[in-house]
Design a protein around this nucleic acid. Structure first.
Lengths: 161, 161
DNA sequence: ACGTTATCGTTGCAAACGCAACGAAGTCAA
DNA sequence: TTGACTTCGTTGCGTTTGCAACGATAACGT
């Protein structure tokens, strides 16, 4: 019997990964070229644009990054002076992370650049095309949720015993 | 003036990256659980399902991975006995990478699992929805090509001098 | 033929990563 | 109060990554 054939180029997860990596790479050129930010740093600092002050844990939950990744990104941002870390007076375990003046200035300059990048990437789409794309993304995400639930359930059998 | 606001959760490159990482993670569970393959190893071995024998350079061009990554993945696959490396008799620089018998057996078992995974992920989509999604992906890819061309052109000014 | 240049695959190295474990701080029950 | 348990952010550690450089081979120009 002939060996199974497979075309990676038409394999959906691969195509998605390639497009995503390429998009992230181009985006990182925007915030790395002018501000020397890494991707984790970018995600942390941009989250601070939305809510502030915030703990490591909250960032971890909001920007899809592991806790140590967030912690180290914050540490770097602190040494570069874009972010400040204060102790929470009510719970000494928490760290209140907030933007410095310089951090706010950087964000004010960076955000329009990033918005412009997004606009360039999506500018050619027809009306409604982006919404349909996002809706499909959502459907795929739901399927992945079921997938994860299934593998978790099948693996949980041993733990019940 | 108020600080610029920004919502990472609705930022397209971020959403794309999150979905892609999640998809790749679930997929890797498939080939890692049963065969202990890493993502680079998976890409190499599945490319061999399509054309064989092949050089490191060709894999590098086809599966969107840097050359050293391919080289190391092939080295690991060789030690685990899924892949064989032979010298090219016509060009001593090239390496002819091909599947061993065991490699073919693994692929024959793995490919149906991976196809089933893809089907589960995309199974809920309506007729035509996937095609529209892929078409939009292609448009975004084209926009990224222009983006890269622009930055390359603007950076090339110094090199001409 | 011979020096130059290009291409092949590999390796070195510093940085980043994932994951587990840690100390510190808070919570809760007895 | 004390002791068990949880949650917080950080750190250690082995692995992986990206990038540049390397030796080896081939191709080219003169």
């Amino acid at each position: 019997m002939k060996r199974a054939q497979f075309d990676l180029a038409t394999f959906f997860p691969y195509r998605l990964a390639v497009l995503s990596e390429r998009t992230s790479k181009c985006l990182s050129d925007v915030y790395r070229a002018r501000f020397g930010l890494s991707m984790p740093e970018w995600r942390v600092i941009v989250h601070l644009a939305r809510c502030q002050p915030v703990s490591v844990r909250e960032i971890h939950n909001c920007v899809n990054m592991e806790k140590p990744k967030v912690s180290r990104a914050v540490a770097r941002l602190e040494t570069t002076g874009l972010v400040r870390k204060d102790a929470d007076s009510e719970d000494q375990r928490l760290v209140r992370i907030s933007l410095t003046q310089r951090g706010e200035t950087v964000l004010d300059e960076l955000i329009p650049l990033v918005r412009a990048f997004e606009a360039r990437i999506l500018g050619d789409l027809e009306p409604g095309e982006l919404d349909r794309f996002l809706a499909t993304m959502e459907r795929i995400r739901a399927a992945l949720d079921r997938e994860s639930a299934d593998t978790a359930a099948s693996g949980a059998g041993e733990e019940v015993a």
